[in-house]
Design a protein around this nucleic acid. Structure first.
Lengths: 110, 110
DNA sequence: TAATGCACTTACTTAAAAGTAAGGGGAGGA
DNA sequence: TCCTCCCCTTACTTTTAAGTAAGTGCATTA
C-alpha cells in the first residue's frame, strides 16, 4: 500500500526539514563533496546525522552517491539532476527567510 | 542577545514546519476562520496543537487574532498582510511537492 | 437544575529527532 | 607492530514535538 503524503508542502518540508539538510544541499550546489569535506564544512554536525541525512537525501533521489573503489576508498556526493530542481525552490524559500530574519531582528531591536 | 537563525531556509521551515501549520494556512488563505471552524476543517488536530500552532503563527506575525467581545465570545483568525507574502512561496513549494509525490508514486508502482 | 457551546489551558504520556561515544574493516606508513 | 585515514554503523541518552484527557469560565438553552 502506497502512502502518498497528503500535503505537498509537507512533502517538501520532509525532504528539506532535517536539521542539517539545507546546509548539506547548500554545499553540494557549489560542487561535489566527500564525506570528510562535508564534516569540515559543517563543523557541528555529527557523523551519525551527516550519514543519516545523506542517506535520506539519496533515498529521495536528491543526491547521488558515487563510490570510487580506490584505496583509500573515495565516496563522492553530488546533486542529482532531480536535486537541481530544488535550487529555484530553495532560492524562493531563502529570500523569504532572509527577510523574515531581518524583520525579527528589527522587531527585537526596537 | 538576539538569536538570529543562521540559515534562512531553516527559518522558513521553522515557520511552516509544524505538523498542522500548512493545513491551517491553507484554510486561512481561503477565508478568515474561527477556532471551531478550523477544528472541523482539520479533523485530526487536537485542540492543544491547534491553539499552539495558532499562537506560533501569531508570534511570527503570520496570522492575526481578533477577539470580538460578544457573548458567546468570538475569536477570528486571519492571514496578516505579512502572512500573505507566504502565499507565492507556498505555491512554489507546493508545486515541487506535488511533483515529488507523483514521482514517488510512479517509483513504487513500477 | 442540568446540559451545551465557545475558546482555550494544564498536566501527563508517547513518539520522533538529534546528540554522544565508541567501534570496525582494510590498507598504507612509522 | 601499532597508528592513521576513510566512511561510516551501532547502541544508548537527551531533547523536542505531538498526542491524550481532563478542566475552566461564562452565558444561554431545555
Amino acid at each position: 500500500m502506497i502512502h502518498q503524503r497528503e500535503c505537498p508542502v509537507e512533502a517538501l518540508i520532509h525532504v528539506l526539514g532535517g536539521k542539517w539538510k539545507p546546509m548539506i544541499l547548500w554545499h553540494l550546489i557549489e560542487s561535489n563533496k566527500r564525506f570528510n569535506d562535508l564534516e569540515k564544512l559543517i563543523p557541528d554536525v555529527s557523523q551519525k546525522m551527516l550519514s543519516q541525512h545523506l542517506r535520506d537525501l539519496e533515498r529521495e533521489g536528491i543526491v547521488n552517491r558515487t563510490i570510487y573503489p580506490t584505496i583509500p576508498p573515495k565516496v563522492e556526493y553530488s546533486l542529482s539532476e532531480y536535486g537541481k530542481t530544488l535550487i529555484p525552490v530553495a532560492e524562493v524559500m531563502c529570500a523569504w527567510g532572509e527577510n523574515h530574519n531581518k524583520r525579527k531582528y528589527k522587531e527585537s531591536a526596537s
